[in-house]
Design a protein around this nucleic acid. Structure first.
Lengths: 340, 340
DNA sequence: CTGAAAGCGCTTACAG
DNA sequence: CTGAAAGCGCTTACAG
């Protein structure tokens, strides 16, 4: 079914049929009626590709690139993006990179080919000069051609709009709260150091401790997953030296894994050891004890990043940074340190 | 940057440039080299819309419609779809209906306009004649025009490929296992009855009980969410009559909410009451006690549904149904009934 | 308000 | 193997 067939059925020209259906220009009521009826009758569905090609408007799709929709952190943000997109009749093209930097760049390229109206990059970038250059080379022509880019949790040299959780400040505030509980001896379960989010949270936590004159004793590195947190916690416990009284996992996903590892090792939380995470993904309220964390409004962040991308660019073309404060939420997984 | 510019830069015709880049036809090596160099130099990115319009192949996108990516059940399946799509260089257009039947049909229409190669419908359909008719009217012309449709958890009159979890058999097996633990007095926390999945699980559970000569005493209906499970459990406890010894929530998401409600009410699980769910979403292993459930291989199901959609249709054009067995996994949330 | 026509950026028979 | 040209299905100045 093409528009041409609809026009013929309605006895009008192609141009009139197009205008009647899109409502851009005035069309005589009876003609519009005939066209609509013909379209209904034939079950006409416009070809979005032809529309995108012919019109200046471009198409109604946005691209969303994240590390993994299966991860509750990204699922939360994606959910917010979906909600906002639905309200604006936008279709979302979703890409999961599974944390492969090269794949992320390839997806941007595919999204450019699709002439996506906007590209949303969700989740920490990689601290890697070559990768950054390649990414910029991909993004710059896209933006120059009118494409919109907005990111979550990413430091950009480029002028793109950003939703930036205050990772550093949040981690520092968490450290302060933990110190206030009486802890002096900390370990961090950390993720891949090339992720900027990891670096920021680690730095912030260190700063928070330093403000109280405390030095972070130990950092164990793990994968950015539940299993990574589990393994890191086991490694921490296996080490011969005295155990810290409090452990900070840089993401809730890791913290959940760590909690399981502690339980398996017979370490009571928080009696023997306190545990905290970051993000406030839904699951942390369901575990026992519920996890102390730094809460980020994930769904909202998703809504905000797409709003940022779609807003009419400021005359100056300056990029905007929306800072998202992280709120420390003390729950059952943290308490006073055990008396030694 | 258009192909035309690339051709000019390389000093060849448009046709040759196209062929050199797509590798469909033989092109003299030196020419191919020049075209590639020119494309690189100019940062050429093909226009997918023009390609889709001009070629018979159609575009490399598939549509994925689910109720909500924010829900771990759908996130799990979506994750599997994404993985498989990535391997085949396919882009996924994601749609969340937030359980509005009308929105689902609207999305199918949008996906048709995008000329998606395949449309994947994930999650229970609605038992509603008018809706089914409208959906079929949308899908039928799409399939006739060569579109591929595959669904998860959906009864179809239409001939579409289906990944079908054995909801009924799984629930029946669960009931048998629970009876084997000694329970005789059951309640079910159920979801919206118009969802076929709910109906199937409820029926199966009843059948499983019936096989042991037991009648289901109580069904409490709730929303298909964590909060719905929480509310339903509260309602169950609030009822004056004697409490059942074992509760089955038709989805894990609801079961997690119910577990929280029981805890809040001081009901010990499983000492005072056993609790089971269905799906085996990741979170159920993290809660305390971990939930007994009927396990479904979510990621795999995602991979299978897209594989089904993309496979070359059988000569007979018959639809295929892939039955997925649910495995009862007994965990800490179920035990012997309390002695009365 | 309406229509004939050009053009969006490609692919692909069809000749050479 | 290569090129000129038609055509994919629309939108939108440009005349009327």
């Amino acid at each position: 079914m093409t528009l041409d067939a609809v026009a013929r059925e309605a006895g009008v020209s192609l141009a009139t049929a197009s205008r009647a259906l899109n409502g851009t220009t005035r069309v005589r009521d009876d003609l519009r009626g005939r066209v609509r009826a013909a379209a209904d009758l034939l079950g006409y569905i416009p070809n979005a590709h032809a529309q995108a090609l012919a019109s200046a408007e471009g198409n109604r799709t946005v691209g969303l690139i994240c590390h993994d929709v299966g991860d509750p952190y990204f699922a939360g943000i994606a959910s917010g993006v979906m909600r906002a997109a639905a309200e604006q009749d936008l279709l979302v093209m979703l890409a999961s990179t599974f944390r492969e930097p090269a794949r992320e760049i390839a997806y941007v390229s595919m999204l450019r080919a699709q002439r996506a109206r906007a590209i949303l990059l969700i989740g920490s970038g990689f601290q890697d000069r070559a990768w950054e250059r390649a990414m910029d080379a991909e993004l710059e022509p896209y933006v120059r051609a009118g494409g919109r880019v907005a990111v979550v949790s990413r430091h950009r040299s480029m002028r793109v709009d950003t939703v930036q959780p205050e990772n550093r400040a949040g981690a520092a505030a968490l450290a302060a709260s933990l110190v206030a509980l009486g802890h002096r001896d900390f370990a961090v379960l950390s993720g891949p150091p090339e992720l900027t989010t990891v670096a920021d949270r680690l730095t912030g936590f260190r700063e928070g401790l330093a403000a109280a004159g405390i030095t972070l004793r130990r950092v164990v590195r793990g994968a950015f997953t539940r299993e990574g947190g589990h393994a890191a916690a086991r490694q921490l416990l296996a080490a011969g030296d005295a155990r810290p009284t409090c452990v900070f996992a840089v993401t809730d996903v890791m913290a959940v894994g760590a909690l399981a590892a502690l339980r398996e090792a017979g370490v009571r939380v928080p009696e023997d050891m306190s545990l905290a995470g970051f993000d406030d993904i839904p699951v942390v309220r369901e575990v026992s004890p519920p996890l102390t964390t730094v809460a980020l409004p994930l769904t909202e962040m998703g809504e905000q990043v797409i709003a940022l991308a779609l807003r009419t660019p400021s005359r100056a073309g300056r990029s905007r940074v929306l800072r998202i404060e992280g709120n420390v939420v003390l729950r059952g997984s943290t308490g006073a340190p055990p008396r030694s």
